[in-house]
Amino acid sequence: MQPFIHIDIASAEEVIPLLDARTRPLAGGTDMLPLMKEGIVAPERLINLKRATNLRYIRVADDGLHIGALTTLDDLERHPDVRRDYTALAQASALAASPQLRNMATIGGNILQQVRCWYYRGDFHCWLKGGDLCHARDGRNEYHAIVEQSPCVAVYPSDPPAALIALDARLRIIGPQGERLVSVAEFLQPPTAQRRSLHGLGPNELIIEVHVPKSAAPAQRSIYLKAMDRATWAYALVSVAVTAEVAADVLRNVRIVVGAVANTPMRATTAEALIEGQSLTEELIREAGRAAVADAAPLEHNGYKLPLTRNLVGQALRDLRGSSS
């Protein structure tokens, strides 16, 4: 790790004037410090946000859930209201990383986690790092995208954001021009030639809160499932988040989000439309699974993600149907 100046601040508002390309905020550090150790980023100044205690909270309000950006994944996993009313978010938090990492990692930092592609993390000047070539495209790509969104085939690695998209969550972001609100779905974007990053946060902006709107429907349910190559502490091979109003075997206002298949968590809108308001038969579930990967084109080593996605979508729908009460 190269030397840096460490700055403590007392509130989030103090951060904005300090931020620039060489001055980065530090929250849980579980991604930032590995990136610095690997030499992928080398900020000259790090601003410790953790003493700004006004950013670690979970507030249940009439308009939904307000989560301070410094709330840890462990906080989310254990919060009784999150578990009951925003189940997918609690499940996604609990399935992320390891207990120690969940004690440290914050929701704001988790949303900004960099891809885990071994070429990006390794000693390759890949396209996402500003180079000309995505090495995974014709290299080792077991864990990579099956839906092409950009010249880079790395997948977005974090779990909670897929649940947040299914739950229609928004981010409160502060910057030099004040505050803006953006949905998580719009915030996470495939990289472009001009913006080699998987999100739309400016260099002098800071996420300060996640807002999950309260559903008007009392029968709203949600679920997050994650396929891993071992039972715990792995990145998703494929993940699925679904929210819906459940009545008997009928799902309404369905939102299906598939993770780890593209640069961003993806809405499976065709699958959603197929099952919307229909009696959820096994045949329909299979059809929805197929629709979720209709546009997919696997790379050399990740064809297994097709059946995995189909089946995981099916499993999530079956579980939700079974949760009707």
Binding site: H6, L26, G29, T30, L33, P34, N48, K50, Q100, M104
Partner: peptide, 19 residues
């Protein structure tokens, strides 16, 4: 590298001492 900080288990390799 697991240690306890205020009773919570953390990875000390990803924790800055100054904090």
């Amino acid at each position: 590298c697991t240690v306890l900080v205020d009773g919570v288990a953390v990875y000390s390799c990803l924790t800055l001492a100054i904090e």
